[in-house]
């Protein structure tokens, strides 16, 4: 595969043809924040945190779905982008009930980590304090909608890696909700294989192993990566 040369933040780098800006930046050691991207599943460009400035483009482009081209000039951390990212996080914190101090994912949460790293120390918008329930009907896992940021990682791993098609989105706008089957209780789902990939993929404490308490919910992303790449790398084949 041919390589392409491009400039990220003024630095010339090269990356394989067909890579996304996000991937090329990652390889070059430039970190672009994101919440909906997950290695191994297709990208949806929904969280808008990975937006970058590309010279010649009239709009900001999501790094996760923008494919690199020769001579592309990308800026990943301008003042404007950082301001928008902070505001995006503020909107998320105000939208549902994110209370880090009592969350299972405290200390292992991507939303929390991003808020720290981007210096989002205040939320200037009204907290909405919506009333969302917790689905604890599954024997192994729980889903706390109060902590959900609707990144749809769980939906995508469920459909495209596990192939179960249990998780989905219902409603629209701020009323959107991750559901199991046709909005049945998770424990009553016929299609769920209890594989736990959704739990591994969740960036916040919305999906968790039952029994984990504050700060205990640690994810093992390498498991997901193993499953996604195992067939290609022939890791399923028994070798002696």
């Amino acid at each position: 595969m041919a390589a392409k040369t491009l400039t990220i933040n003024g630095r010339q780098i090269s990356a394989a043809e067909g890579s996304t800006v996000l991937k090329a930046a990652e390889e070059a050691g430039v970190e672009i924040p994101s919440l909906c991207h997950l290695d191994g599943v297709y990208d949806v460009g929904a969280c808008r945190l990975c937006l970058v400035e590309v010279k010649g483009a009239s709009r900001l482009l999501p790094a996760c779905t923008t494919v690199i081209s020769e001579g592309m000039e990308v800026q990943t951390g301008t003042e404007r982008l950082i301001k928008y990212r902070r505001m995006t996080l503020e909107l998320l914190f105000a939208e549902r009930n994110h209370v880090c101090s009592v969350c299972v994912a405290d200390g292992h949460c991507e939303l929390q980590t991003l808020a720290y790293s981007l210096g989002m120390d205040h939320v200037r918008f009204d907290y909405l304090f919506p009333k969302w329930d917790v689905d604890n009907t599954h024997s192994l896992f729980g889903m706390d909608h109060n902590r959900c940021i609707l990144c749809t990682r769980c939906v995508r791993v469920c459909w495209h890696i596990e192939g179960a098609g249990t998780k989905n989105v219902s409603g629209r706008g701020g009323q959107s909700k991750i559901i199991t089957d046709l909005n049945a209780a998770w424990g009553k789902s016929d299609s769920c294989t209890s594989c736990g990939k959704c739990v591994q993929s969740c960036p916040t404490g919305a999906l968790f192993y039952k029994g984990s308490t504050v700060g205990e919910m640690v994810r093992d992303r390498s498991k997901l990566e193993f499953i996604v790449n195992a067939r290609e790398k022939k890791l399923w084949v028994y070798q002696d």
């Binding site: 949806v44 460009g45 929904a46 969280c47 808008r48 995006t88 909107l91 998320l92 105000a94 939208e95 918008f125 009204d126 909405l128 940021i149 609707l150 749809t152 989105v169 409603g171 629209r172 706008g173 701020g174 009323q175 959107s176």
Partner: peptide, 21 residues
């Protein structure tokens, strides 16, 4: 717009709610 936002991206989903408020 708030009622008709599909809820996929954060700026529209949560931003329209806050702008409306």
């Amino acid at each position: 717009c708030m009622d008709e936002s599909c809820g996929k991206c954060i700026p529209c989903r949560a931003g329209t709610v806050q702008m409306h408020r």
